[in-house]
Write a protein that binds this DNA or RNA. Structure first.
Lengths: 265, 265
DNA sequence: CTTTTTGTGATTAAACGAGTTACTTTTCAA
DNA sequence: TTGAAAAGTAACTCGTTTAATCACAAAAAG
């Protein structure tokens, strides 16, 4: 899906430009012009393999987007804005768009979202799961238990943990190696560590968390079946919320049992 | 093209979501779910007017993107992530993508871009013109003359002017009213002001600039014809570069004549 | 056990975009 | 000046995508 921007800059750039709403021709035209700096329809057509007659349409599209300037001569000459300017332009536009989306969605979001008592929700994909975990961290008020394999303990998670700790949430971390424990202790002095509840298998591990004894999440990495080893879409999780939620009840039982055993209050 | 996110949040949100690559059904489904918080295919279908049988596909799409979690029961329940989380997700993804684009384009950009001597380039649209002006500001080494109507002297322009001044570029600003001159003097102490070269008509004004005597740009606002008054696409500009460039020659002549007259070196 | 709901799959129809071709205008060289 | 090549415009074809409809099996509910 996404090419390496250093290995194959052409393809990578074209890919992104198309994602940002440009037509295939416009994307390839812009990439061609970027490496040329400046050129005619003919030049562009040769390096981009866009039919010469359609370069003009592509240029129109790019000109309207402010990515290409036109020299009115014969033959017409086209000039692509610099890589830096182009990126900045897109960045601004997309920043603006996400802001629009944010206010629009915020506007129509109901005041209070019902917290589900029954049932267990599923999330797929590592980024999506991480996002959910971050939400949970952010909503923690008193206690936060997080058990994970190290590869899933990323910078942003540690950061969010730190913030939770700052507002007085008691953090309990498990499953991390001795070396990493050191580092965590530095960044989040308030955190307490505990040993893995069981032998945390390397193969199909995941995360396990509980927030304030009323929100829980369990995830597993699903390598091997039909997902590559480092495929970000290779994690699947379930979570539940509410005091009487079945998943919550089960996990709370386990956690309280083991944690109390290790460090009795 | 783009609706007001406060006036009509639904439409605005749907619009943006589609721009971000979601199908029409997925976009409308997500918006419906956002206002519901949680709901079944039936619920969604009713408020979004997406055919019930197609809600499932839409949900799949959203689930894969990590925007919706699924409760495996009968009937299935769907849960939309919060407005804030959704926006953040998109923000991250797009941030990442522009970064990809930046490195990809940078990779294939030629080392030195030929500076055009002959001919005059055209740019349309206020944002595009502003972008070009910013580029010019950034490339200034010694002298920068900028004459504009006030509505086109935005914050980012002033900022970039300030940076130019900091690195020793002599700034000459024209066409701004007395009040604004005050403010500029505060922000950019090194700048010198000069009176408008001629009566700067309010109706179809624009900008006029020269950098180091070898890059020039002229723009005009084209209100009235077929563009709304506040339509951002209502500015059109031409620019040229190089000592012998025709536009440069003409404007340099005018500027030197008038500026020397006003404040002789 | 019948009757709605729910979910899946296949099918149709319209829209869009890539690619091609035909044709007019301009440029340049003989 | 004129003929050939290049530049520019415009129409059309074809294939893919996607919205929308329909048919049907499985599952709840009465």
């Amino acid at each position: 899906m996404s090419s390496d921007p250093v290995e194959d800059p052409q393809t990578a750039a074209i890919e992104q430009l198309e994602q940002f709403g440009l037509s295939a021709y416009a994307a390839r035209t812009f990439v061609a012009l970027s490496s040329l700096g400046t050129g005619t329809a003919r030049d562009v057509s040769q390096v981009s393999e866009v039919p010469r007659t359609r370069v003009y349409d592509a240029i129109d599209e790019l000109h309207e987007r402010g990515l290409v300037d036109i020299l009115q001569s014969s033959p017409k000459q086209f000039w692509a804005i610099s890589a830096e300017t182009a990126s900045r332009t897109f960045e601004h536009e997309l920043q603006h768009r996400t802001e629009l989306l944010r206010t629009a969605l915020g506007e129509l979001e109901p005041a209070e979202r019902r917290t589900e008592q029954r049932g267990v929700w599923t999330v797929d994909g590592q980024t999506a799961v991480t996002e959910r975990v971050l939400d949970f961290f952010a909503s923690a008020e008193e206690e936060l238990v997080y058990m994970t394999v190290e590869e899933l303990l990323t910078e942003d998670l540690i950061e969010e943990l730190g913030e939770a700790a700052d507002r007085g949430v008691s953090i309990k971390l498990g499953g991390v190696s001795a070396e990493v424990q050191e580092r965590i202790q530095d960044e989040i002095p308030g955190a307490t560590m505990f040993e893995s509840l069981w032998v945390w298998s390397d193969t199909s591990a995941g995360r396990l968390m509980m927030v304030d004894g009323r929100k829980t999440l369990v995830s597993a990495l699903v390598n091997g079946v039909d997902a590559g080893p480092s495929d970000p879409r290779s994690e699947t999780a379930i979570w539940g919320e509410g005091d009487t939620n079945s998943l919550v009840v089960v996990l709370r039982a386990i956690f309280t049992w083991r944690l109390d055993a290790e460090e009795p209050t």
